[in-house]
Amino acid sequence: MKITCVVVGKIKEKYFTDAIKEYSKRLSRYCKLEILELADEKTPDGASEAEELAIREKEGERILKALKDDAYVIALAIEGKMLDSVELSQKIESLGVGGTSHIAFVIGGSLGLAPAVMKRADYALSFSRMTFPHQLMRVVLLEQLYRSYRIMKHEPYHK
């Protein structure tokens, strides 16, 4: 299975970079992982709703260009469906059994995802109703993907 993480924004903190490297290394036993970092747009202080929508749309265009036609797209969105770790594992496994060979997870920028990206998504996943920084969300996603594969393979993992 190929897993692509399409993410808006760069990681600036070394501790996030280190965690991403560690989980990427761990995941290499289970899948082919690709992380595509896309440029984010700067949001001016006090941006209007129209300005924020324009920023989401610019970032959304970049995301849509990065997504392959064959990818099953899972958008990380606060309004998505919440799954526990076992359910996420089952979701990934059932996609693979059903013939899906490429899953793309999308993490938007600080303003969220453009409507066009949500429309392209095959599934919307929420990790919580809380808002998280996109840098931290990348680490959380990779950890949960690693946990999912450990669950699928009936290998031990801390609960």
Rank of each mutant, 00 (worst) to 15 (best):
G112L: 05
G112F: 01
R129N: 11
V86P: 02
G112W: 03
R138Y: 15
V139A: 15
Q135L: 01
D122G: 12
L88W: 03
V86R: 14
F105T: 00
I103R: 08
Y123C: 06
A124P: 02
P115W: 03
S128I: 03
L136R: 12
V140R: 04
Y123S: 15
Q90W: 07
L125N: 07
V86E: 12
V139R: 13
G112M: 08
S94D: 13
T131L: 13
V117S: 05
M130K: 13
P115D: 15
P133E: 10
L95I: 00
V97Y: 08
Y123M: 14
G112Q: 06
A124V: 08
Y123F: 15
L95H: 00
H102N: 15
F105G: 00
G99H: 01
M118A: 11
S128E: 06
Q90C: 11
S85V: 04
L111R: 11
V106M: 00
Q135C: 13
P115L: 07
I103F: 15
M137T: 13
G108N: 08
L83V: 07
P133V: 04
S94G: 10
F105W: 02
V97P: 06
M118E: 14
V86C: 08
H134Q: 07
A116E: 15
D122P: 02
L141W: 03
L111K: 07
G109T: 03
I103D: 09
F105S: 00
L141A: 06
G112R: 02
V106S: 02
S126F: 03
V140C: 09
F127Q: 03
A124K: 14
G109L: 03
T131E: 09
L113K: 00
G99W: 01
L113N: 01
S94P: 01
F132K: 01
T100P: 00
K119Q: 14
L88C: 09
D84T: 12
M118V: 14
A114N: 11
L83R: 10
V139T: 15
P133H: 11
E87V: 04
E93I: 10
M118R: 15
E87N: 11
I92C: 10
R129C: 04
G96L: 09
E93F: 13
Q135D: 14
G96T: 04
K91S: 05
P115Q: 09
I92D: 05
F127D: 03
L111N: 12
V117E: 01
R138W: 07
S128L: 04
L88T: 11
I92S: 08
G98F: 00
G96Y: 05
P133R: 07
A121L: 08
S89C: 12
A121D: 04
G98E: 00
S85C: 03
I92K: 11
A124D: 05
S89P: 14
G112S: 03
R138C: 09
H134T: 12
L141Y: 01
I103G: 13
D122W: 10
K119I: 08
S85H: 05
A114C: 15
S101Q: 13
I107M: 05
A121I: 11
S128T: 12
S128Q: 07
G108V: 04
R120G: 09
M130R: 14
R138F: 07
S126L: 07
S94A: 12
